[in-house]
Simulated assay, not measured.
Amino acid sequence: MGFYVDDIEAAVAELRARGVVFEEYEGCVNGIMDIRGNYPSKGRGERAAWFRDCEGNMLGIAEVVR
Rank of each mutant, 00 (worst) to 15 (best):
L15I: 01
L15K: 04
E46Y: 09
E23Q: 09
M58N: 11
A48C: 14
V29I: 10
G19K: 01
K42L: 15
G43P: 06
E24G: 06
C54F: 13
V64E: 07
V5Y: 05
D34K: 12
M58H: 08
G27E: 08
R16E: 11
R44V: 10
S41E: 12
G2S: 15
F3T: 13
G37T: 07
M1T: 13
A11C: 05
D7Y: 04
D6R: 15
D53I: 05
E26S: 10
Y39I: 13
G45I: 07
G56D: 07
C54T: 14
G27H: 04
E55P: 03
D7Q: 02
E63W: 11
K42Q: 10
C28E: 04
R18N: 14
L59H: 07
C28T: 11
A11S: 10
S41W: 01
A13R: 03
N38W: 11
C28L: 13
A62T: 06
G60R: 01
I35A: 13
N57V: 11
W50D: 02
A62S: 12
K42H: 14
F51P: 05
G19P: 05
E55Q: 15
C54Y: 12
A17G: 13
G43L: 01
I61N: 06
L15N: 01
F22S: 00
D53G: 15
S41D: 10
G56H: 11
V5M: 03
A17R: 14
L15H: 00
E55G: 09
V64A: 06
N38L: 15
V29L: 12
D53L: 05
R52I: 02
M1L: 08
A48D: 08
A49K: 01
I35C: 07
E14P: 08
M1C: 10
E46T: 11
A10W: 03
A10I: 08
V21K: 02
D53W: 00
L15P: 01
I32Q: 02
V64C: 09
G56S: 07
E26G: 14
Y4S: 12
S41Y: 08
E24W: 02
R36C: 13
D7V: 05
G43E: 14
D34P: 03
W50R: 05
G2C: 12
F3C: 15
I35V: 15
R66H: 13
N30K: 00
F3L: 15
G27A: 05
E23W: 02
V64D: 09
A17H: 04
M1H: 14
P40S: 04
R44Q: 11
K42M: 13
E24Y: 02
R18M: 07
N30Y: 00
G45Y: 07
R16V: 00
E24K: 03
A13Q: 01
L15Y: 04
R16Q: 07
N57M: 04
R36W: 13
G45Q: 09
I61Y: 09
K42N: 13
P40L: 03
N38C: 08
R66C: 10
M33V: 12
E23V: 02
S41K: 08
P40V: 03
D7L: 07
G37P: 11
I35N: 09
N38M: 14
V29P: 02
P40I: 08
